[in-house]
Design a protein around this nucleic acid. Structure first.
Lengths: 210, 210
DNA sequence: ACGTCAATACGTAAATATACGTATTTTATG
DNA sequence: CATAAAATACGTATATTTACGTATTGACGT
């Protein structure tokens, strides 16, 4: 029997998933949670460690990524299947680094999710086609191999907040020319030549959020 | 008996919703669809027009907004309840113009959705608290009362694509000074002073997409 | 201890953007 | 048809950005 603990903040989605997986033979949803806090509480109260965690990414408190990271550290034997519509490159990148066992999209058909669960339990990994493509793209995207220093990311954040170089210099107590230098370096590293491209990059990369 | 037709592209969410609403007394989910195309096909094949449509917004083909618009025109008696996590201001604005009967968030508890359905069937409207706040904010936001000409929106789109004024002028076959004038006017209208703020505005307003 | 790299800073020249003004033509709208 | 609004265009002045350089300091790893 595969024991599953499920986290998703959408009541109806959680209900549907529980129902669908409960009907599948060999799968047992032993606990569910609507937030990271609930998840860890549920995990502690269970008599046996579940076989696998199904994690949504966007949650009210912790993100699913954070949960995955803590699970890997504190419960290294638990399998992790991400179940989310989130596709920000930064998130995908982070999850591959954490080494989750699989990732399926929220609009995957039930059969695919069950297949993913079984594949993972048998020791494999399962990434939905669109996610797999995204991972490949992320790994190939030259811009994501670019390393940006913390300071450069600070500059990007402030730029993208709509601040002018002058304001940024004042705020960080550095010279405006230093700000310029950073921007120049960022542009060169990323191979772009406009602030708008920078903003798009920052959004994709997860440096800033709307 | 309240007959409901449900559209959502997430299998599991649709399953959960059907289950939850099917258990509620007086509510009957008579059809469901994963896309706009499926929705209209299902609608035609039904012997009786359903009482209400539950519409997700992000769908593979038509958007839920488009469906709502067509329903209002072709089936003016059908009630419409939006059921979505989408909160872009442009979408909210559009839906209030179309005059949908309600809007609940995907993470609303089941009871709230049932309450929304009953309220609407009794002739009322139901907007979830967070959506209602958003609508109030949207109506109060000065930036959304700003009228932008088509041309100005063209300029914004091209700007936000990372094009320089020079490139835009060439592309639209107008003078660079005209582009400048437009940008100046846009900045003045919006009360902003940086390209980054323009991009944020354009994203919120739905003029551009990532 | 040495080398590398990030962060800091400055200078200068060219390119761009922005802030003012004004003005003509086209398009909507009453 | 008349009027308003939008789209078009130009000039000039200032501010900002970008693209080249160069250089010092401190942190980190080997």
């Amino acid at each position: 029997m595969i024991d599953i603990i499920l986290v998703d903040d959408h009541d109806l989605f959680r209900m549907g998933t529980t129902m669908a997986l409960g009907n599948a033979k060999g799968i047992n949803v032993v606990a569910q949670a609507a937030s990271g806090k609930e998840f860890f509480e549920a995990l502690q109260s269970l008599p046996n460690e579940p076989t696998m965690a199904l994690l949504d990414i966007i949650l009210p408190d912790l993100s699913g990524v954070e949960i995955a990271r803590r699970l890997r550290a504190e419960h290294p034997d638990m399998l992790i299947l991400m179940l989310s519509a989130e596709t920000a490159e930064s998130v995908i990148l982070e999850l591959t680094e954490i080494g989750v066992d699989g990732f399926v999209s929220k609009n995957s058909p039930t059969e695919e999710i069950i297949e993913a669960i079984n594949t993972i339990v048998e020791g494999g990994t399962y990434f939905a086609k669109d996610i797999a493509r995204l991972i490949r793209d992320v790994c190939n995207a030259s811009e994501l191999r670019v390393e940006l220093s913390e300071r450069e990311q600070d500059i990007i954040r402030l730029c993208c907040d709509g601040m002018h170089a002058r304001d940024i210099a004042d705020k960080l107590c550095i010279s405006i020319r230093t700000v310029d230098t950073h921007k120049t370096n960022i542009f060169r590293k990323l191979g772009i030549d406009s602030s708008m491209s920078l903003m798009r990059f920052a959004l994709r990369r997860g440096i800033i959020h709307l």
